[in-house]
């Protein structure tokens, strides 16, 4: 068997191979960092729901408060998805024959749940507490975005650990007075001065922990 010899033209390709060899690892690292980031994978998840409930109509136009439906958000860790009864508070009368409300009426008659698709699902080892945040000046909008403008709810923030820590390390800009906590169109970054937000931090005793056991048990 004859020995393999690089053809003579290999010399011409050598610089190209060197450049390619330097670029390839960078390409792979940047591609993974970008494509596998929760900002790419998680943000923008917008599942179709069994009922095309529009937050833009109910919250944006009619001005319903978030807590009218998500009643447990300021007293429990879990922000509850409303019971069918809550829909039927109005829809026994308003739009009562609408074909789009059929699953709600069926649920009301049968007692079975409407099978909503969960949009925000944290890993089971993280224990986020809604009440701890909304009772101390962190508005819904900081994590969920402008729900009041969404026809279909989509995930607005990556909700990764790094993203949580950004705020836990520097919470001041995300704080607002409690009476504006569900007013999603209001922005403390433009409506308040940095000093006022800093004062809120003191008033609400905001001292966010970065300890593992704060969120993981």
């Amino acid at each position: 068997m004859s020995r393999f010899l690089f053809p003579r033209w290999s010399n011409a390709v050598l610089p190209l191979v060197a450049v390619g060899g330097a670029i390839a690892p960078l390409y792979i690292v940047f591609l993974i960092a970008y494509a596998w980031s929760p900002k790419t994978i998680e943000v923008g998840y917008k599942p179709a729901q069994p009922v095309p409930y529009s937050h833009a109509l109910h919250v944006g136009q009619l001005g319903l408060d978030c807590r009218y439906c998500h009643t447990t958000v300021d007293r429990a860790a879990h922000a509850s998805v409303p019971a069918t009864q809550t829909c039927m508070n109005c829809h026994t009368q308003v739009q009562k024959d609408s074909p789009r409300l059929k699953p709600v009426r069926e649920s009301y008659e049968s007692g079975r749940s409407v099978l909503w698709t969960r949009v925000h699902d944290l890993p089971d080892y993280s224990y986020f507490d809604h009440s701890a945040h909304v009772n101390r000046g962190v508005s819904c909008v900081e994590c969920h975005g402008r729900i009041d403008q969404m026809e279909v709810v989509q995930k607005a923030a990556p909700m990764s650990m790094g993203w949580c820590l950004e705020c836990h390390r520097n919470p001041t800009d995300n704080l607002r007075p409690l009476d504006r906590i569900t007013q999603l169109s209001w922005d403390q970054r433009t409506e308040m001065t940095a000093e006022e937000r800093e004062a809120l931090k003191k008033l609400y005793h905001i001292n966010p922990s970065e300890n593992c056991s704060t969120c993981h048990r």
Binding site: L31, A35, T40, I41, G44, Y45, K46
Partner: peptide, 16 residues
Amino acid sequence: PVLAVQSRNTTSEKPP
């Protein structure tokens, strides 16, 4: 990279 940029800037009905 083009697919990744597209994924970052559009919404999707499919679970992440």
